[in-house]
Amino acid sequence: MPGCFDDDDMPELFPDDSPDFHRPDRQDDRLRARFAPPPPYDCDVPPSYPDPPLYEDLRALQGGSSGSGFSTHRTPVWDELLISSRDWLNSLRSNSTGRTATLASQCLDRIGQLPPDELLDCFSSQSALTTTLCLELLGDHWLRDEHILAGLEFVEQRLGPESRTVFMPPWHMLNLSMYRQRAAGPYNPSRPRLREPAIASGHADIVVLPALVHGNHWVIFYVDTRAATIRYADSLSPCGAPDAAMLSDLRWWLAGLLPDRNFNVVEHTSPRKG
């Protein structure tokens, strides 16, 4: 897939040209919440996973891992998304300087011209990222698997075609559970699935696997195929261990692809909350 992002277009994720971001006299709660340093972690306190804003349509086929007490919300309409996106961009423009502020201004100038629900062709048809989903990202909406996959594709494009890092789609861990239920023994599909040839042939040093836990929270597994290690990162529970069933499914899959290796979990500390 051709890259569609130029270096000049790249905003800084945590702009270092914006010293005002953490000033206490800045009263923009949303911006502070997004960019504030994480609080110190207390591993003795169990993490609290919030109830998700489950949209009405998403009740279909909901898996058994979901939490209870869901409330249903209608899917945000375009005009509401425009308002929340403009709020965020205005906050960003007001509270930053330099290129970040310029980019926020440019986005504000152009956002009204966006057609609703149009596919962005610089992302793959797998992520199916649309203009509507982009506006969700700018607002306060939670991340759908399209957002996660598009983010991974973005990183993949930045790493370039020679990269030896493989990103699995956000539904892969759920897929593994389904594959394992069907398989009588070791992972041995009749033909290779998505990204598996690169892993099995030793052309992937790192495999990154996002996963949804508790039906509402994204975590990530980070597999180093050369060191035969698995790292797990959960921003809400940085001291926590991965879900045992997920870890078991992941090891089952890796054993099928790389049978000469025994993968061990090694400790990972999440760098920040979010």
């Binding site: 709660d29 949303r30 919440a33 997004r34 919030p50 998700p52 804003p53 489950l54 949209y55 349509d57 998403l58 009740r59 279909a60 086929l61 909901q62 898996g63 306060d140 909406h141 939670w142 991340l143 759908r144 698997d145 956000p170 539904w171 759920l174 897929n175 389904m178 069907r182 949804l212 509402n216 929270h217 994204w218 921003s235 809400l236 909350k273 979010g274």
Partner: peptide, 15 residues
């Protein structure tokens, strides 16, 4: 052959 079907996944946190 099998087609797998699953619900869209949504995750996040409260700001």
């Amino acid at each position: 052959d099998t087609i797998d079907v699953m619900v869209e996944q949504v995750g996040g946190t409260v700001l």
